[in-house]
Design a binder for these strands. Sequence first.
DNA 1: TCAGAAAATAAACAATGTTCAGCAAAGGAA
DNA 2: TTCCTTTGCTGAACATTGTTTATTTTCTGA
Lengths: 200, 200
Amino acid sequence: MGAKERKERQKTEMREAILSAALKLFSDDGYDTVTMRKIAEEIEYSVGTIYLYFKDKSEIFFELHNRGFAEFFQKQLSVQHIKDPLERLIAHGTAYVQFAIDRPEYYDVMFISRTPSKEINKSKHWTEGERTYDLLKLNIKQAMEAGYFKDVDIEVAAFSLWSFVHGISSLFVRDRMMMVPAEAIKPLVTGALKFLERAY
Amino acid sequence: MGAKERKERQKTEMREAILSAALKLFSDDGYDTVTMRKIAEEIEYSVGTIYLYFKDKSEIFFELHNRGFAEFFQKQLSVQHIKDPLERLIAHGTAYVQFAIDRPEYYDVMFISRTPSKEINKSKHWTEGERTYDLLKLNIKQAMEAGYFKDVDIEVAAFSLWSFVHGISSLFVRDRMMMVPAEAIKPLVTGALKFLERAY
DNA sequence: TCAGAAAATAAACAATGTTCAGCAAAGGAA
DNA sequence: TTCCTTTGCTGAACATTGTTTATTTTCTGA
């Protein structure tokens, strides 16, 4: 009898429903303008029900945070097949920014939002983040071996490149480009990515 | 009789007290963990009193936002006496990051925090921001005339440099550098600023 | 001194996250 | 089937938020 399995399935389905409702609402507004009651209304259950599936609001946040990183890491990996180290590195940066543009709600949660509690730091949540950072350093190292980045410390190079793409992404996500006409944003972003090639 | 004047003075003193209490609290936690009651407690008045001096909580936010930009602009100007265009530009970027490090609470409010309402966009609050952006473009233009930044669009260069220093600053301010040991952060930041010289 | 104005307060309101006593449906045992 | 237990869900309640308002206190100017 598959009653146990069905129960199990329903449980995960409910969790999924809550998470996707929350993510949908997060996209429109920020973390704290999304209310538990709105999420409840979205999934057509009462408020209390959510607490049967998640300890509290920040657990929903963390779960989305995790999923964001998983998807993010996959996107970063998708570039590793490129042979030329420099091209690969550029594609790596482009994929980074593209992720922020495609999934601003995730990017926000992952890299910009104030973490609801300090626990997220140093916790397992960040191992995913470190994996992508290690990937970046690997790509830089290989670019170095191919003759680029002469006389640059690898840590400095990694941090610099990360700062650069994060700067672009977060200005975009948090809407701080109002001095730029809307139609000029896209070319500006690609232009900026090209600009950094000069430093290689 | 100077009763009018005294009243006036007391009024501005009260505003100052509220603002500095708010800024102090903002530094410790973020915008929304600071409550009106905490501010009231800090200045030893009741909650309602604050509303006699500020329309609502976001007006306090805006006022700090404005002051942040004023101080920021001054800091940027302090670098203009440097003769060599390239040196000046580097000092400009360094001053930017230094402002974020010295005044993280302002930097957060100015460039990272989600704006409480959309009004801040396109409003007079941002004219200050545009002034510093224009200053950056001016410095870039002069660096170009001195032979740097060959074949780069000035808008792209400005956006790239801004993204870079903003990336550094916001990673620092929002504490997303946990993969880096604390004592390595400072050298990394200065290293990153030096790194960008390669693109000139 | 005293009436009116100004400033400050405390209580109240609606909306938030969270908890919990109770209810209803489902499942299993007789 | 019938009864009891378990499970899932609800909706009211609580504390805490920003904000408003009726009331009280303090000050001002004659």
